[in-house]
Design a protein around this nucleic acid. Structure first.
Lengths: 156, 156
DNA sequence: GTGATTGCAAACTTTTTGCATCCGA
DNA sequence: TCGGATGCAAAAAGTTTGCAATCAC
């Protein structure tokens, strides 16, 4: 999705909410999120990136903007592992229906190595869930915990 | 799994690590986690529960104990939704051999509601992974992100 | 012009760390 | 006894809030 289209959507939603303004800062935060679609960024990551173009921005503004974008459903919040900080990425609704990311990981319980693993096997299960529960699935995340090849060897 | 067995496992692992001690506090934290198997508790939740029986415990001890239990793979860390705090539950290895805890969850991106969802569909995929990559799978965790029935309604 | 928004700093919340004391092995 | 563990308080790290100045409409 092109930046123009995302910006247009932001402007629409701000108008819908009534009285809210399209500011330079809001556009910049959104554009950084869009340029890094797929990565999971903390507020500080976003602050650092926006600062490159606009050093006078404040961290508090980034937090306030992320809260606003979340309220308007333009960004998603995610929580990876137990690192205790909230991460953001551009919303699924904006992220193009096609390029949905399938978070499949093999995680070794011994050495904590994380290996990616691709498989689209779950698509049909999503349909089943939606029919059975009314829950509309947007994305999934599948983690397998176990022992990697190397740690299996070491174990014996 | 009975508390006795869990305690025994804790003692074993502490001995394995060498020099680590079985303290009243560690036993209490583990027993609270076991009594509340299935719920996802913050460190403070656990602190409050342990405090009922043992008011002199410090919050820092709870954090240190949870870190230790996690290192020894006796508890799991989970991070649902974007509520910005880490939660703990008794580890899946301990949570009953038969009823292997398959963490299947439907997580609403809007209201952060978490609904359980059971399915054993992934067993065959585990075999496939092991043959293809040499990774020995012990457990899996599957999360579907989307919009629950209620939030779907509200959206229109 | 007017009210929403911003930057800054201070407050808050959650988690970690330093240290003197205590306790399990 | 002795080194690991604890409780407390102080420090970090992450996030929110109050307020005067500023900017979008």
């Amino acid at each position: 999705m092109e930046a123009d289209k995302t910006q247009k959507l932001l402007k629409e939603r701000l108008k819908e909410k009534g009285g809210l303004k399209v500011t330079h800062q809001r556009l910049l935060v959104l554009s950084v999120l869009e340029e890094n679609s797929g990565s999971h960024m903390t507020a500080e990551d976003i602050y650092d990136l926006v600062s490159e173009d606009y050093p006078e921005i404040g961290l508090a503004t980034v937090y306030r903007t992320l809260q606003l974008l979340w309220d308007m459903q333009l960004v998603d919040r995610i929580n990876f592992g137990g690192d205790g900080c909230v991460r953001y990425e551009i919303g699924h609704l904006l992220n193009g229906g096609e390029t949905k990311h399938n978070h499949h990981h093999l995680i070794c319980k011994r050495c904590n190595k994380v290996m990616p693993f691709d498989d689209d096997l779950l698509e049909s299960l999503e349909d089943h869930i939606e029919k059975a529960t009314g829950f509309h699935v947007l994305d999934h995340e599948l983690k397998f915990y176990g022992l990697c090849k190397d740690c299996m060897k070491k174990q014996r």
